[in-house]
Nucleic acid binder design. Structure first.
Length: 798
DNA sequence: TCTCCGCCACAG
DNA sequence: TGTGGCGGAGAG
């Protein structure tokens, strides 16, 4: 038997199956979708079997055998293998990347270089002895100071280099103690009279014959230590075994089960439409304003799916994967739910994944990668907040969860629901064309009014002499809520600029030496950091250009706002939520909980607070500057701004108390801001579509972004130029090719960046031309140190 | 003549 | 991508 294997080497010439002989003793086991260890050139690597067959075109004498099977049960099923092939073409990625992304990180290979003894330890240089210790090998990373000595030993042949492939996380096992059920047997065990601990344990055992108990539990219950248990087990009083377990299974029985809410008429209509199509591969766009009760529809639809014996996947953006939200699923579906989020360790994720694979759970709630949940009998896929850009992975494989969802929907003949208050233009356009079925919820579920949104013209504030970052109206409102004991959320639209360090005398802004971007000031550590390459340095006392001592920190970071806020309302308790305060695990959750419990009056934060906040006491939301996302050089700038303002406004007045929103802007007349004021999606859509049509962007055109990097500016611009020329020759006349141009951030980590854009409506040759371009890159530019990245349907072109 | 380093081909 | 082989350059 012969196996086709995709090996774990992400490189263009390797991106194809390699044939291996399946050794006789493995032939009964080997199946597509299993991981294998195979020899590849001089080393061993991990790979996936994608096919087994009896014959090969390859010279049988040169074919090597599979070294080891890593799985007993395939980690990828037929569907996943097919999806990977499709994904490879769709996103222009390596097949191995597509396969790896579908498997939990714990199952991906970890390679460790090490030096292995090939002779007795006494034959090697005695200076190396301490490095080996009593092991027959040293890890390369532990032996950096003695590479020279090791090299000599390798020449002598006493030591050889080797790569060890490790499984990252294994199945967690617990030690179970099975107490003998025969009292006679227990009585027959001899214990010395002075072995007090053993006597104590025996007394416990005699009270509980036949009991199977985890060793840690037994230690607690009997008040003894592990060695005591071992000695009695050896004497035959109990059996020991290792039992597979899951990490930290949360006590689900403690979660109270909740019943369905009664659907409003609009909700019911939407629900019915979906429920009627449960066995059709149809895509629904559920457009419901914030607070219209989309989640309840999801929950009840999932319930229907479960009743028919099928499974469901629910995708949410990572940031809205809050405890509040997961609790809601657990309340409905109990231990049928697996939750996959970034807060889990690799081992915990692996455990959740195994529960899915074994069919122990029926519902998965998770972020982007949960779309690969290995269900066999999928009945429904939901993408909540479908417009979120986090559904698109921004490194290879650059897949969009929405595309994967629709593919799987077709494979399983099941519906896909895309839900949003602010659908992406692509999805809404498709719904209008009838490709997706549009379902609308126009009212909030409990009929609460939408919050009153006031737009504040900050130019006017400047004219009247208010130079602070809070308009008079906003400041008054904040004070008012404070007096009433209601809560305020302040949103700082920070993206695009942040606090930088500037010399007031010569105007020099401190720049990263490796990237064309200014350094960000971090107050807590008194450091300046580059957010692209990680470079950091202390804030200088004098300007490096003019030696002036007038160094100032500029910009509007959340820390700056916090200071201003302290001046405005010194008595207010303020919680700040940004990258700095949420770096630690669980910090995000802690801050939100504290705010929910009323431990603060004001929550101040960046994008990350725009979602999932659902507290009844929030009656004021302030957007400090609506403009920052608006003027980014990106075709989605207006769309993003509209979405953000709508989402943020939706945080106010979700319960009984009515909400008010203030949006401060220097361009208050912009349509993205004026339409967001009253959540007028349709008019916004129409106007934005007109803009897209005029400028040739999605949904009118498909876009491909091709980015080049190289150490040398001239070289990279030349490659980009050649590419554009090549594309112009080989793509159709109606396709637009934009560029080449330097990227917005023209240099990162000392590499210059250039890009070009392809805009097309119909381009049957696209895949072929992209493959051809990769060939040119491989044969000419790669060797010269260039990199090329192709992003199909990018979420942004900056 | 020995050794080191950089480039290149190749991987089943 | 990682590795080992090959050949050129420099040192002794």
């Amino acid at each position: 038997m012969i196996a086709e294997v995709i090996v774990d080497v992400a490189a263009h010439p390797i991106d194809r199956p390699f044939d291996y002989v399946v050794p006789e003793k493995l032939s009964a086991l080997a199946q597509p979708g299993m991981r294998v260890k195979v020899p590849f050139g001089p080393r061993k690597v991990l790979g996936f079997i994608t096919k087994v067959k009896e014959t090969s075109d390859f010279d049988p004498n040169r074919m090597k055998p599979i070294h080891e099977l890593m799985d007993v049960v395939p980690v990828l099923n037929k569907e996943m293998l097919r999806m990977a092939e499709w994904m490879k073409v769709q996103t222009v990625c390596f097949e191995i990347d597509a396969l790896q992304v579908m498997v939990p990180a714990a199952l991906r290979a970890k390679y460790e270089k090490r030096f292995v003894l090939n002779a007795g330890l006494e034959e090697v240089d005695s200076r190396l002895h301490p490095y080996f210790g009593d092991k027959p090998f040293v890890r390369s990373q532990d032996a950096e100071d003695v590479f020279g000595l090791l090299k000599k030993e390798m020449d002598k042949g006493t030591v050889i280099a080797d790569t060890n492939i490790q499984q990252q996380t294994a199945v967690k096992k617990v030690r179970m103690i099975h107490i003998s059920d025969s009292l006679e047997k227990l009585d027959s065990v001899e214990i010395r009279a002075n072995a007090k601990q053993q006597l104590k344990l025996m007394a416990f055992m005699k009270k509980n014959p036949g009991l199977a108990i985890e060793s840690s539990e037994l230690q607690k219950a009997a008040g003894v230590t592990l060695p005591t248990i071992y000695s009695l087990a050896e004497k035959g009083a109990a059996d020991l075994s290792n039992v597979e377990t899951y990490r930290d299974p949360k006590m689900l029985s403690e979660i109270e089960k909740k019943e369905n809410l009664v659907l409003t008429e609009a909700q019911q209509q939407a629900f019915d439409a979906i429920a009627q199509s449960l066995n059709t591969p149809r895509t629904f766009l559920l457009h419901g304003i914030t607070g219209s009760g989309k989640t309840e529809i999801y929950l009840q639809t999932i319930e229907q799916v479960l009743k028919s014996g099928k499974e469901a996947i629910m995708l949410v953006p990572e940031i809205s994967l809050t405890p509040q939200m997961t609790l809601r699923f657990k309340e409905r579906f109990g231990d049928m739910v697996a939750v996959l989020h970034s807060g889990l360790s690799a081992g915990e994720k692996y455990d959740e994944w195994r529960k899915i694979q074994r069919g122990e759970v029926k519902v998965v709630v998770g972020a982007r990668s949960a779309i690969f949940a290995p269900f066999e009998n999928l009945g429904l896929i939901i993408l909540d907040e479908e417009h979120e850009s986090s559904y698109k992975q921004d490194d290879s494989p650059r897949y969009h969860a929405r595309d994967m969802a629709i593919w799987r929907g077709e494979y399983h003949n099941c519906p896909v629901i895309l839900g949003s208050a602010t659908p992406s233009l692509e999805s809404y356009a498709r719904a209008q064309k009838g490709v997706y079925e549009l379902l609308v919820l126009e009212k909030r579920a409990r009929n609460q009014p939408l919050p009153a949104v006031h737009i504040v013209d900050m130019r006017e504030e400047l004219r009247t002499g208010n130079r602070s970052m809070f308009s008079v109206q906003m400041a008054d409102a904040i004070r008012d809520r404070l007096e009433k004991g209601e809560q305020t959320v302040l949103f700082l639209n920070k993206r695009g600029y942040s606090s930088f360090v500037l010399c007031r005398d010569c105007g020099t802004v401190m720049q990263c030496p490796n990237c064309d971007i200014s350094l960000t000031y971090h107050r807590s550590s008194e450091m300046m950091k580059c957010h692209y390459c990680g470079y950091d340095e202390r804030v200088p006392h004098t300007c490096p250009e003019c030696e002036s001592e007038h160094i100032r920190f500029f910009g509007t970071g959340t820390q700056k706002v916090e200071e201003e806020l302290a001046k405005l309302v010194p008595e207010a308790r303020v919680l700040r939520m940004d990258v700095d305060t949420t770096r630690n695990k669980g910090a995000h959750e802690k801050i939100l909980n504290a705010f929910g419990e009323g431990k603060a009056d004001i929550l101040l934060g960046t994008q990350m607070i725009a979602k999932g906040l659902d507290f009844p006491n929030i009656t004021l939301v302030g957007v400090l500057s609506a403009d920052t996302t608006l003027h980014l050089p990106d075709f989605r700038a207006a769309e993003k701004t509209y979405q953000l303002l709508t989402q943020v406004s939706g945080r106010a007045g979700r319960d009984v108390l009515p909400g008010t929103v203030f949006v401060q802007s220097y361009t208050p007349e912009h349509y993205a801001i004026t339409f967001a004021k009253d959540q007028l999606y349709e008019p916004f859509f129409d106007q934005e579509m007109a803009m897209r049509r005029a400028s040739g962007y999605p949904p009118y055109y498909y876009v491909v972004n091709i980015q080049f990097t190289h150490e040398d500016l001239m070289t990279v611009s030349e490659y980009a130029r050649q590419t554009v020329e090549y594309l112009r020759q080989h793509l159709s006349d109606r396709t637009l090719i934009i560029g080449p141009s330097a990227s917005l951030i023209a240099r990162v980590n000392n590499r210059y960046r250039y890009q070009c854009l392809i805009k097309y409506k119909k381009e049957p040759k696209l895949t072929e031309v992209m493959q051809q371009l990769i060939k040119i890159y491989r044969s000419e530019w790669l060797k010269k140190g260039a990199t090329l990245a192709i992003d199909m349907n990018p979420t942004s072109v900056m």
